[in-house]
Write a protein that binds this DNA or RNA. Sequence first.
DNA 1: CATGAATGAGACTTCATTCAT
DNA 2: AATGAATGAAGTCTCATTCAT
Lengths: 186, 186, 186, 186
Amino acid sequence: MRKANARERILETASRLFFKRGYSEVGINEIIEKAETAKASFYQHYPSKEALCEAWLSHVHDKSEISRSEILDMDKPASEKLELYFDQLETFMKQSEFRGCPYSNTGAVSDESCSGILEQIQGHKESIRQFFREICFQHTGDREKADQTGDRLFVLYSGATTECQNMKDLWPVHSARAAALELLNH
Amino acid sequence: MRKANARERILETASRLFFKRGYSEVGINEIIEKAETAKASFYQHYPSKEALCEAWLSHVHDKSEISRSEILDMDKPASEKLELYFDQLETFMKQSEFRGCPYSNTGAVSDESCSGILEQIQGHKESIRQFFREICFQHTGDREKADQTGDRLFVLYSGATTECQNMKDLWPVHSARAAALELLNH
Amino acid sequence: MRKANARERILETASRLFFKRGYSEVGINEIIEKAETAKASFYQHYPSKEALCEAWLSHVHDKSEISRSEILDMDKPASEKLELYFDQLETFMKQSEFRGCPYSNTGAVSDESCSGILEQIQGHKESIRQFFREICFQHTGDREKADQTGDRLFVLYSGATTECQNMKDLWPVHSARAAALELLNH
Amino acid sequence: MRKANARERILETASRLFFKRGYSEVGINEIIEKAETAKASFYQHYPSKEALCEAWLSHVHDKSEISRSEILDMDKPASEKLELYFDQLETFMKQSEFRGCPYSNTGAVSDESCSGILEQIQGHKESIRQFFREICFQHTGDREKADQTGDRLFVLYSGATTECQNMKDLWPVHSARAAALELLNH
DNA sequence: CATGAATGAGACTTCATTCAT
DNA sequence: AATGAATGAAGTCTCATTCAT
């Protein structure tokens, strides 16, 4: 039942709750209660709620990074990789607990004082941007053109994520997917 | 004491603060203090903080709606209207207090229980979606194609807004602008 | 629809609400809203919530006093009058909105500073006490004995009212009725 | 700062204040101030004001239960036990801070939503009812008759408590005592 | 007579964090 | 490493009343 160590239990619990309800809407009390830990044990492992947030974002990033690497390494045309990515994105959005991009959402409630969080957000976003650039490069072999197009695909990806959540509908990701393919091929 | 119209002072103050720091990060206490009103006066005019949020979003929407109408009514090519819209968006983002789309940001901290807020968000987004569709229709005269392309432009617009905030940079809006023009012309 | 004058609308509304939910649990705002009056109109007619409470208690008292007078004037044995009174009490308690004696309940949330309210309570209670004494006098013709027994019946009556509310059951009034008859006949 | 055990200080303070002025008339702020604790410390121990109320009523009940047990276990005639109980009741009422039955008073400001409080009230009242039944059973040995008479004594007890508070006088408890003895002996 | 905006004081509750053990 | 009590600050909201019109 109770996982061995508290540190992981806390991170897992927080991940679940932050993802489902948003960083600002989940309090420390609920986290430690659901993680079956004591208050002070929490602060033993994480110096602050903000630090826990960073750990969460970092953890999510690492997992998503792997998935993008796998796509890049696949032996198929770039356009199909792009389709695959958007399909995976759609699957991600179909989760009952999806409520938009965890990074953008967290950024929406963080100010400049949360520099660690902001770094996580930018790092994650930049990583996805580079993923799109790489896909485009695999498609054309033209680095400059790939960077340009990759950035556009990244913006489409972001808009799709945001608006599927806002509109409670999947049409934005379908539009983004189609537009992305069009932009990829000029 | 300040002269009458606490209602307006409250809305103005809240608009400023919500825009600058986000709905969830601004408390009633700060609003009434800066608006120089009593707490009970606040609740005389707005039954809850949530209601104030709705009033704010509605107010912002009305102003932005006018601006989009003006663009649509201009006597110039659709492509130029599109450029103008993205230019205005960029100007909007250059405000020192810009911190992303107020609607998406507010949605990021609202759950299903905030139905009034969610309606404002969806209404606003839908209105912008229709704006893009209309621009495209003015460009081609083909309703079906216009709706398809309009949706794509809308997604670009949203992604640009989100990522300019996340990346603290303007390149996403530039990318979106270029991509939008390309999609408009096939 | 709206009754002619505000004064009466306020009293009627307050009576209904105070009876149903208790003096302390009903606020001025709700009263004036349901009475369709303005705040200041309320204070035109009643200098304070406390004054309205007094008016309510006085009003209730006057109506109940009539009912007791009618019983005393009836042409039937005192024991039957006593039964009738307890039957009426039971009927009163069966109202869906019954929640105990309005006077005792109001006394439970009033301190010495509410002298007007306390006077209403004591006046009402004393009046009922005298009613029981009179019933007993009609039964025996012995004033001294009647006063003694009357007081006991009054206590039974009060206990029945309190405990039917507490226990959400009618057995206390049935017990009181039986005990009262027994005490009446020695 | 005061030494530990805020929990007890809070309960003691609240007991004193609730008893003296009534549940609804005493706020959390006053309780924590007089208990020399922080507000959050209060909520660490009691999840709500209502929960504190339940703790108070439960505490009072436990103490009073002991006293009734002691009376039942005494080696003296039931009639003397009854007299003793009413004498103790009178002593209780003579306290300068007496303001009626804490349970009935609390019930007077609680609606159905306060189920925990209502349970405390009914449990306490039922316990006293059983006490009177037991006294009567010790007197007669007839269980059925004892239950009937016990209920009547309970109603007298309740009426005495309520009306001594309302009338600011001790005659109701004297009447109740005399009536109780009479009912006990037929 | 009637109005509705304005008010100070206070209601109950939760926040992230620290401390003594 | 782990605990649970304690905390100051802040959260949203409601009270009965008054004032300017």
